[in-house]
């Protein structure tokens, strides 16, 4: 059965339109960030600025400690990512290579937390952070985000695909778990660990809900919060400056996307959902 040409063409048109809807806003944001506000209002349809200017970026640097904010975002994303990757790897290793009573139940409970809406833990976590005196600090943003079972799930899936006999050979050679982990398992799951790490970094970088609750002063803000300032208070009048912040917010995720896209798609692809 050959696919009808007209049918194929129709589908291609549909997909191209979808891609346009999905990708256009990103390009539009970049263009707008180099337009003076007046230009943006007058020439809404021009994607590219007629008179490119850095005006928005200058305003941005004048009104906000944007370097500090970017730094905050970067630190939060890095620490959370590293912590989650390490603990997820260790936990996944225990779930795959150790047998103990209650293993299945513990795994089930941990994975189950993925399906708990955040509002269920929101108030107590706010109180914990408040008790610890960490309100309005980047630590307050980081801590509750450390509890995330997605990494355990994905890394475990990847580990399970390693033939058990590889580990058995190492056991016959009297190798301890530390060495098996470092020399055998880690190198073999590295693609998955990398992909999960990138994914963690991106989602923490973009996290909005929790920082909104915790952070109060602009010096401690993360990028998504800075972004919100330009829309909520002034009703969108600073749209082009908001676009400048957007561009800064998007740069790192976009670079990571370009480099690691294959890896990540590969991990989600191969890990499967079972």
């Amino acid at each position: 059965m050959k696919t009808n040409r007209a049918v194929a063409l129709t589908w291609h048109i549909i997909f191209m339109a979808t891609v346009l809807i999905l990708v256009f806003p990103i390009i539009y944001a970049v263009g707008m960030s180099f337009k003076p506000l007046q230009d943006a209002y007058n020439n809404v349809l021009n994607i590219l600025p007629l008179h490119p200017s850095l005006e928005n970026y200058i305003t941005l640097f004048d009104t906000l400690p944007i370097l500090q904010i970017t730094m905050n975002t970067f630190i939060i994303a890095s620490v959370v990512t590293i912590f989650k990757i390490v603990t997820s790897f260790l936990a996944a290793y225990a779930f795959v290579y150790f047998d103990f009573k209650g293993k299945e139940i513990l795994y089930f409970v941990l994975i189950g937390t993925i399906f708990i809406p955040f509002t269920v833990t929101m108030i107590p976590n706010y109180l914990i952070i408040s008790e610890m005196g960490l309100l309005d600090s980047i630590w307050g943003v980081m801590l509750p985000q450390l509890a995330d079972a997605v990494g355990i799930f994905l890394i475990r899936q990847s580990m399970k695909s390693i033939p058990v006999s590889l580990v058995e050979v190492a056991r016959l050679d009297n190798m301890g778990h530390r060495r098996i982990m470092k020399d055998i398992v880690l190198p073999l799951v590295r693609p998955a660990v990398t992909a999960v790490g990138i994914w963690f970094f991106i989602s923490t970088w973009n996290e909005f809900v929790w920082p909104v609750l915790i952070l109060k002063t602009t010096d401690n803000y993360t990028l998504p919060l800075a972004l919100q300032m330009f829309i909520s208070s002034e009703g969108g009048t600073n749209f082009t400056v908001a676009m400048a912040v957007s561009v800064i917010t998007m740069i790192i995720p976009l670079i990571l996307y370009l480099i690691f896209q294959k890896y990540i798609i590969g991990t989600f692809t191969s890990s499967g959902i079972k």
Binding site: W205, S246, P253, Y257
Partner: peptide, 20 residues
């Protein structure tokens, strides 16, 4: 192309679409 927006902040998306 379809996977790309998954990497981008939804706050960015919200502001952009409010304008668009």
């Amino acid at each position: 192309a379809m996977f790309l927006p998954a990497f981008i902040s939804l706050v960015v998306g919200s502001i952009l679409f409010t304008w668009i």
